[in-house]
C-alpha cells in the first residue's frame, strides 16, 4: 500500500464528459441486454422455503426444538427417573423464576423480586468489557491483518495467551484490581478480546488484492484503504468474532460473579446452589442464556445493514 496521493483538482466543469449527455448510445440494445439477463440476485429463494423468509416464520421454526426439549425435560421429571429434589421440572423452575421476578412473593427468598437488578448488574459488566474488547480487538486484529511486522510481533504472544482459560484470569484480576467492578470489566474484556482479534485478523488479511487495487486506483492511501475497503470488506467476518466474544463476555461475567462479587446472575446462581435451591440455579442458567440470546440478536440487528451484502451472496441466498 502506498501513501495518500493527491488527485488534484482536475475537474473542469466545461470538460465534464456527461454535461447534458444525450440519449444512450444504443438504448434498445441496452434494454435487450437487461431483458436477456432477467432479474438476478435478489428475491431468489429455494422452492418451498418462502415462509422462512418472514419474521414470524423464522421465530416459529426456532421455537420448535426448544419446546421439544422443555417437553422432554418435563416428561423425564414426571416419570421420576431422578429424585425431584435434585432435578426440578421446567414448571417448578418457572415458579421460581416468577418469585425471582417478583410476580410471586412467597416463599420469600433472598432473590425475591431481584431479577432485573441481577440482570442489570451482569449486563453492565458484559457491555463494558465487550465494548473495550471490540474496540481494542478490532484495532489489534486490523493491525495484524494488514501488517506482517505487527503480525510477527504480536501473534506469538496472542497464541500463548489465547488457549489460557479466561476464568484463570480471575485471581490475576482480583490481585490487580481488587474485588470490584474494575476486576469484572477486566474479566469480561479478557473473555471477549481474543476471538475478536483472531476473527478480525483473519477477515482483514483475506481482503482481496483486486479490491485494494480498486481503492488505490480511486486515490485512497493506507488509511483510506483501511476505512473504505478493508474494514467494510472484512466486516462480516469481524461480526463473527464479535458474536463469539459477546458470548464469552456473558460466560466470564456470570463465572466471576459466582466467585468474587455480591450481585448479578452468577451471584444469585451460586448463592441458590449454597442454599440447595436447585430450581433457582436452573432459573439463573436459563435467564443467562436468554439474556445472551437477546444481546446477540441486538448485535446482529445493529450490524445487519453492513453485512447484508455478504449474507445475500452466501450459500443460503
Amino acid at each position: 500500500m502506498t501513501d495518500l496521493s493527491s488527485p488534484g483538482g482536475r475537474t473542469d466543469p466545461a470538460s465534464v464528459m456527461l454535461a447534458g449527455s444525450g440519449p444512450l448510445p444504443d438504448p434498445a440494445s441496452v434494454d435487450a441486454v437487461q431483458a436477456a439477463m432477467g432479474e438476478t440476485g435478489s428475491g431468489r429463494r429455494p422452492l418451498g422455503m418462502k415462509k422462512l423468509g418472514t419474521r414470524t416464520g423464522r421465530i416459529g421454526l426456532g421455537l420448535i426444538v426448544p419446546v421439544l426439549v422443555l417437553a422432554g425435560w418435563q416428561l423425564v421429571v414426571a416419570a421420576n427417573l431422578f429424585p425431584s429434589a435434585l432435578i426440578p421440572g421446567p414448571l417448578t423452575v418457572l415458579d421460581t423464576a416468577e418469585n425471582w421476578l417478583g410476580t410471586r412473593q412467597s416463599p420469600s427468598m433472598f432473590y425475591t423480586g431481584h431479577m432485573f437488578s441481577d440482570i442489570g448488574a451482569t449486563l453492565v459488566r458484559v457491555l463494558v468489557g465487550f465494548a473495550l474488547a471490540s474496540v481494542i480487538g478490532v484495532a489489534l486484529g486490523t493491525a495484524i491483518g494488514v501488517s506482517r511486522l505487527v503480525d510477527g510481533l504480536l501473534s506469538p504472544l496472542l497464541r500463548i495467551l489465547g488457549p489460557i482459560p479466561p476464568i484463570t484470569w480471575i485471581p490475576v484480576a482480583i490481585v490487580l484490581f481488587g474485588i470490584g467492578q474494575q476486576a469484572n470489566f477486566a474479566l469480561t474484556f479478557v473473555g471477549a478480546v481474543f476471538p475478536v482479534i483472531a476473527a478480525t485478523a483473519v477477515a482483514v488479511s483475506g481482503v482481496g488484492r483486486d479490491l485494494l487495487r480498486a481503492g488505490r486506483m480511486m486515490g485512497d492511501g493506507r488509511a483510506g484503504l483501511i476505512g473504505h475497503v478493508v474494514l467494510p470488506s472484512a466486516f462480516p467476518g469481524i461480526v463473527g468474532g464479535l458474536r463469539i466474544g459477546l458470548g464469552l463476555s456473558w460466560m466470564m461475567a456470570v463465572t466471576s460473579e459466582m466467585l468474587a462479587v455480591h450481585n448479578g446472575l452468577g451471584y444469585t446462581l451460586w448463592n441458590a446452589y449454597n442454599y440447595l435451591d436447585y430450581p433457582a440455579v436452573f432459573a439463573a442458567m436459563i435467564v443467562t442464556g436468554i439474556c445472551g440470546l437477546l444481546t446477540d440478536a441486538l448485535l446482529l440487528a445493529a450490524t445487519r445493514p453492513a453485512t447484508r451484502w455478504h449474507a445475500e451472496t452466501g450459500v443460503r441466498s
Binding site: G8, R10, D210, R213, M217, M218, G219
Partner: peptide
C-alpha cells in the same frame, strides 16, 4: 503510484 488520473477497468468487475 496509483491515482485517479489513470482509471482502471479490471478483468473481474471489482
Amino acid at each position: 503510484r496509483p491515482g485517479p488520473d489513470r482509471a482502471v477497468v479490471f478483468q473481474a468487475p471489482t
